[in-house]
Design a protein around this nucleic acid. Structure first.
Lengths: 212, 212
DNA sequence: TTTTTTAGGTTATTATATGAACAGCATGTC
DNA sequence: GACATGCTGTTCATATAATAACCTAAAAAA
């Protein structure tokens, strides 16, 4: 079970690797390096055994009796996740959320770079947001080819999301992050991550009703 | 296991209830009402058996041999989730994401209403975004008491998130939605939902690297 | 009516994820 | 250099979740 190419690693482990990476970045910023599974796990709100197990899917990164070097571990996690390189992305939907994404500096720092944005609103087309030009959807094929775009981000209203996803897929984009609160149908060779904020609020409401 | 107050219902079931609700809303908008577990489940990308099981935690909502009434089921799910009432909320952090949240109409439609926003930037204090006034953080206690605020939303930078959460908790807010990419420490009688967009991108990168 | 069909509810099985316990290696100490 | 200590890597038991199979009720057809 130690091969990096093993596909049977739980998705939630991948998710937590991202959490660990973020935590390690902050830890390094504070000028420290040596960190134990205990400390890193607590910072992420998980069990230390789970952290060690998550890492063990991919190899051995610590030193027994000592702990982990934050720098080394971060580098390893980045290699595992693929965040040690740049990922050119396009955005569809330059509304408020789209604006937020285009300006989200933490994405850029991790190598996720928007090379272009798209919208159907003529008032938005031609504008520049955070150095990123807003095109009409028709320009998508050209841009994708030109910049070898691999990730498409959807921040459109619900009812446009599937259509945009289909366009992305048609142009060969294999990774989609969807912020529209609707689930996207897609072939198995395309990876889609959904993020539905509205459901977070539903969950909060549910648990608030039942506190005590 | 059929009591609505049973706390041992999996969190992921609650999450899916939110998905079902959204799907049902769209279904009703198309003017239809009768829907089978098969159709609803497929629209949400889940297994029909899972949908039926999720619902069975809370009672019986369908008619055997027939299906569900979308309207009735939606009403039931809303009562379960607590989205059949209004939830007054406050926002901390009026950056791009904060703006997006204040303008997110789908939240309002579901009863989640921002009554005030807060920021530390003097340039933002006093502004009005989508009819919502931006206050200095010092005003928090007064606003929370005045509007009986039950949910606090964090859209600040990482390093301010914990401090804001502590303020929320100090004022008696029991539900927090955190969009800052850091995990919030909180007592057990406070409910926190985290949403970290950056990790979605990490996951996409991971799976893109391993396609084929 | 009786039969057949349909689709929800329920139980059983399988798969997955978590947490605790322990084995094993590096470091520091006497 | 032997020994004690500390923290990782790994295994295993438990808990949780997903799927499949089955049972039952309602509606439609014969």
């Amino acid at each position: 079970m130690n091969s990096m190419s093993d596909f049977r690693i739980p998705g939630i482990t991948i998710y937590r690797l991202g959490m660990y990476a973020r935590s390690l970045e902050r830890f390094l910023q504070e000028g420290r390096d040596l960190i134990s599974s205990e400390e890193l796990a607590r910072a992420c709100g998980v069990n230390p055994a789970q952290l060690r197990k998550d890492l063990s899917y991919f190899g051995q990164f610590g030193v027994r009796g000592v702990g982990y070097s934050a720098q080394t571990l971060l580098k390893s996690i980045r290699r595992i996740l693929g965040t040690d390189r740049e990922w050119p992305m396009v955005l569809a939907g330059v509304g408020h959320l789209g604006h937020a994404l285009l300006s989200y500096e933490i994405l850029t720092r991790r190598g996720f770079k928007f090379v272009a944005a798209f919208d159907v609103d003529p008032a938005k087309i031609g504008k520049v947001v955070n150095d990123i030009y807003v095109y009409a959807m028709e320009q998508l094929p050209y841009i994708v080819r030109e910049h070898r775009v691999e990730i498409g981000v959807i921040a459109t209203p619900c009812d446009a999301a599937q259509e945009v996803a289909d366009s992305f897929i048609r142009e060969g984009i294999k990774g989609i992050v969807n912020f529209a609160p609707t689930s996207i149908k897609h072939p198995p060779n395309v990876v889609v991550e959904q993020s539905d904020m509205t459901i977070l609020f539903d969950k909060i409401a549910y648990y608030l009703l039942r506190l005590d």
